[in-house]
């Protein structure tokens, strides 16, 4: 009885565009953010139904979790900037709108609608044309990948493509992420949250429980990436979630991490990736052509290092600036401890 699943798919397919439209059309930013989080969750389900568990994992971690937290924090800053315009409580807003005299209420403009309809139909026509022109089986990449799986060193096809067959692309992607973090760091310092705002006991306990669990799951995702869905990006995203949770809770330990260490953690993945790419050449292959027998180990090493760097990068992007140099004494006291944390996360 797969009918129920058919209805499930149709429902998902109908709700997703509607949700996307509501999210873009919403005049209220907060509502748009919540709709975005919901969209991420449903999108993840949709990826599952499309048999793309890797993407579903990434969407669950990044789309629903990290970006949601990022937007919710960004809203706060926006609100401070334009306090008069932005109201989170839209009950008030709605009330205001209803109190306005009728001639001041927002009027719908027919011209705008016609224009929007026209542009939409042009877009759909172009999209449909492009779809029709695309050959039904573009290049038959699937069987090609399946045929070469024996040489990749891993069992998961996605990982094989990402880190072996098209390792070059992934290398560049990791670099792009690194550049993004560099850009943010060169623009601004992280905003110092006041020291006295310690988290309440409930939040502190939640952090205490969740952060080690997140580290474990991140390690698991990196490991399982070689045989099933998972990998550096997914593991890194979960690691970043742990970082975001720590930043949200304003835990003192985070502030004491020396920035040199953060810099190294940020560089570790891209650097190791690049070095191993070059090392492959010196061994006697092309760029990123791992030796056949040990390809699995190379991939695992690169993935672990990149996972740490991606985690630190995403958390740094959330923090939104380069860290302050902590007082020299604190740094010395904590150096040994923090080095251990980061090295541990390294794997």
């Amino acid at each position: 009885m797969t009918d129920a699943m058919g209805i499930f798919d149709i429902m998902l397919a109908l709700v997703l565009p509607w949700l996307g439209w509501r999210l873009l059309a919403s005049p209220n930013l907060f509502r748009a953010v919540v709709l975005f989080i919901s969209l991420g969750l449903l999108m993840s389900l949709a990826w599952v139904r499309l048999h793309a568990p890797d993407v579903a994992l990434a969407e669950a971690a990044i789309g629903a979790g990290l970006t949601g937290a990022l937007f919710l924090s960004a809203l706060r800053r926006l609100e401070r900037l334009r306090d008069s315009e932005r109201r989170l409580d839209y009950a008030e807003k709605r009330e205001e709108e209803q109190n306005l005299p009728p001639e001041k209420r927002r009027k719908s403009k027919p011209v705008a609608y016609v224009l929007a309809l026209f542009l939409l139909s042009v877009f759909l026509l172009l999209l449909g044309g492009a779809l029709l022109k695309t050959p039904v089986a573009p290049g038959r990449l699937g069987p090609a990948v399946a045929g070469q799986m024996g040489q990749s060193g891993v069992q998961s096809r996605v990982t094989a493509v990402l880190l072996n067959f098209r390792g070059y692309d992934t290398l560049l992607e990791v670099m792009v992420l690194f550049l993004a973090a560099l850009g943010v760091w060169s623009l601004t310092r992280v905003r110092q949250t006041p020291q006295e705002k310690v988290p309440g006991p409930v939040l502190a306990t939640l952090v205490r429980l969740l952060v080690p669990l997140m580290i474990t799951v991140a390690g698991y995702l990196v490991w399982i990436g070689s045989s099933r869905a998972g990998g550096a990006f997914q593991g890194g995203a979960v690691l970043a979630a742990a970082g975001v949770l720590l930043l949200l809770a304003n835990v003192t330990v985070v502030r004491q991490i020396p920035s040199t260490l953060l810099r190294w953690a940020l560089v570790l993945g891209p650097l190791l990736f690049l070095l191993s790419a070059v090392a492959c050449m010196s061994i006697g292959g092309n760029l990123l052509e791992y030796p056949r027998q040990s390809a699995g180990s190379w991939i695992l090493l690169i993935e672990s290092a990149t996972a740490v760097s991606i985690g630190v990068t995403l958390a740094a992007l959330y923090a939104g600036g380069r860290p302050h140099e902590p007082a020299a004494r604190e740094a010395i006291v904590d150096k040994s401890a923090d080095t251990k944390v980061k090295n541990g996360e390294g794997a």
């Binding site: 580290i215 474990t216 390690g219 090295n343 541990g344 794997a347």
Partner: peptide, 10 residues
């Protein structure tokens, strides 16, 4: 390494 990191964090 993961377990060590998690233990340390905890």
């Amino acid at each position: 390494p993961t377990i060590l990191a998690a233990t340390f964090c905890s």
